[in-house]
Write a protein that binds this DNA or RNA. Structure first.
Lengths: 193, 193
DNA sequence: GCTTGAATTGAACATCTGTTCAGTTCACAT
DNA sequence: ATGTGAACTGAACAGATGTTCAATTCAAGC
């Protein structure tokens, strides 16, 4: 069972995924060749096929793992809807600021997924959005929120939160904690009565 | 000066831009070949070079014209900051719902611009954002708004508004006018004290 | 009818594309 | 010392890529 010392597969495998992640995020899936990925890894193009069946799977696996990890990253806490919403927003921002490249890919490269793969990612995205919609619905019923359309509010809030990734750069004027607070403030007011 | 009747260049030219727009929006710049564009136009690939110096210019011109047209699409009206903000939000949504393909390209294909072209588009984007920031700053000073960070609020609001394009489809449950109202409501509350 | 010239073709270019696979390497187990 | 097998190379594949350009088409103007 133990891997042989000389084996590189448990090093090269992750390296391939990492290189694909970086290059897809920087140049876009269609603009990155297998040879470019191989070069980044320090290997010939043919060797990549020991670690992925094809280029499409490289993209799909990155996106699927990202979405699954995002879903696992939190649970709706017990408590009043406002606290639940705050937890959602803060987790979303923190999670997204931590993995800018994955986030970028997961939402820029949807159209490069083959249709079955696309359906899988869309379903995962739907499950994530449903959690926010659920929080908003309960809050609306209990009178804590005033959102005319919970589905729209869900998409508006997520778009707004995810927008951080378009401008945030490490070491900038604001720390993640500041950003969390500012965005949460805006969301809180946006859904308030 | 008058074009000859037999001339097709004033027909083919726009057709080329239109085909590029559609295909870039659908498949992404890098995934669309000049031959694919030519086929959509009904012409051989070589003929495209009568209407564009190269593929890059096709993308850049679409984006630049879009941004310039967006800037021309409105002016900050006289009046209280809240009315100015409402005008901005409603115009933004209306304008974006009217040209989903251009909007999509202008913000998905930034990384496919050569660096000088990128700088031009970024400058135009900056000028557009500055208008919203200006409204928020005045409103903040006059006490009409309570935004802790006007630059962040600018980006958050624009991200939220532009987000409509990710889900809106013609003939859906909501009319553009409904959407304008719902989003404006959320923005209004988000910046209120 | 003939000339002009803009619009377009179609072939050619050098290079790149994703993917396959027979052959090589070399740390390990025996 | 020898054999094994995972990891990898390097060449090959069939076709696509952006771009150029000599040659063709054909309506307009004379």
């Amino acid at each position: 069972m133990a891997r042989k010392q000389g084996s590189h597969s448990d090093i090269t495998g992750p390296k391939v995924r990492q290189a694909a992640l970086r290059l897809f995020a920087r140049h876009g899936f269609a603009a990155v060749s297998m040879r470019a990925i191989a070069k980044e890894v320090g290997v010939q193009a043919g060797a990549l096929y020991l670690y992925t069946p094809d280029k499409q799977a490289l993209l799909f696996d990155l996106m699927r793992e990202h979405m699954e990890h995002l879903l696992d990253s939190w649970q709706v806490p017990a408590g009043p809807p406002e606290a639940q919403l705050e937890a959602f927003c803060r987790n979303h921002i923190r999670y997204h600021l931590d993995r800018p490249e994955l986030v970028f890919i997961a939402y820029m490269e949807l159209r490069n997924l083959e249709s079955e793969n696309f359906a899988v990612i869309e379903a995962l995205r739907g499950r994530y959005e449903a959690q926010l919609t659920g929080i908003l619905q309960v809050g609306q019923q209990e009178g804590a929120f005033a959102v005319p359309d919970t589905k729209l509010a869900t998409l508006a809030i997520i778009a707004m939160l995810t927008g951080v990734n378009t401008w945030y750069r490490e070491g900038g004027r604001l720390q993640p904690a500041d950003i969390e607070k500012i965005y949460w403030d805006m969301v809180r007011k946006a859904v308030s009565r």
